[in-house]
Simulated assay, not measured.
Amino acid sequence: MTGIEPLAAITSSALQLAGPMSSSTPVAGASGFGDLLVRGLQNVDAKIGKADALMQSFAKGEPIPLHQVTLALEQARMSVDLAMEVRARLVEAHRDFMSMQV
């Protein structure tokens, strides 16, 4: 035994053994998990921005109903809470994955 092979060498030899890749192309509009997370965070950011803008407009005395401001603030809070829960679950899954015996 000569030692541990670099990961790139192992990956390339495994791909050679696997044979040619399938020629199927990804479905149009399909996105990965990372894209889903990015869109979710952009949505949270948009809700926070909307709530902030409504709150500032209300504070300036513009004719904005209080219930709209309250609703926007609550939607932003719930979005942040959901994002934090997703983050906690992802961190927990990562820890579980890293502690697995191989």
Rank of each mutant, 00 (worst) to 15 (best):
T2Y: 06
G3H: 09
I4G: 00
P6V: 11
L7K: 12
A8Y: 05
A9G: 03
I10G: 05
I10K: 11
T11K: 12
S12G: 01
S12K: 13
S12F: 02
S13T: 09
S13W: 08
A14G: 05
L15N: 11
L17V: 12
L17W: 14
A18W: 11
A18T: 02
S22G: 04
S22C: 04
S23N: 08
S24K: 09
T25K: 11
T25W: 04
P26C: 02
G29T: 07
A30V: 10
S31Q: 15
G32H: 07
G32V: 01
L36G: 13
L36E: 12
L37I: 06
R39N: 13
R39L: 03
G40Q: 07
L41P: 02
Q42C: 08
N43E: 15
N43Y: 11
D45T: 01
A46F: 07
A46D: 13
K47D: 13
I48P: 01
G49E: 11
G49M: 01
K50Y: 09
A51Y: 04
A51H: 03
D52T: 12
D52Q: 15
A53R: 08
M55D: 12
Q56F: 02
Q56W: 00
S57C: 00
S57A: 12
A59T: 02
K60L: 09
E62I: 03
E62V: 03
P63M: 07
I64Y: 00
P65T: 10
P65A: 15
H67I: 14
H67N: 07
H67D: 15
H67Y: 14
Q68F: 06
T70K: 03
T70R: 13
L71C: 02
L71A: 11
A72D: 07
E74S: 14
Q75C: 02
A76P: 01
A76K: 00
R77N: 14
S79M: 04
S79T: 00
V80Y: 08
M84W: 06
M84H: 07
E85R: 05
E85F: 07
R89P: 02
R89H: 07
R89C: 05
L90Y: 10
L90P: 07
E92F: 09
E92A: 15
A93C: 01
H94M: 14
H94P: 05
R95G: 14
F97S: 03
F97G: 03
M100V: 11
M100G: 06
V102F: 10
V102A: 06
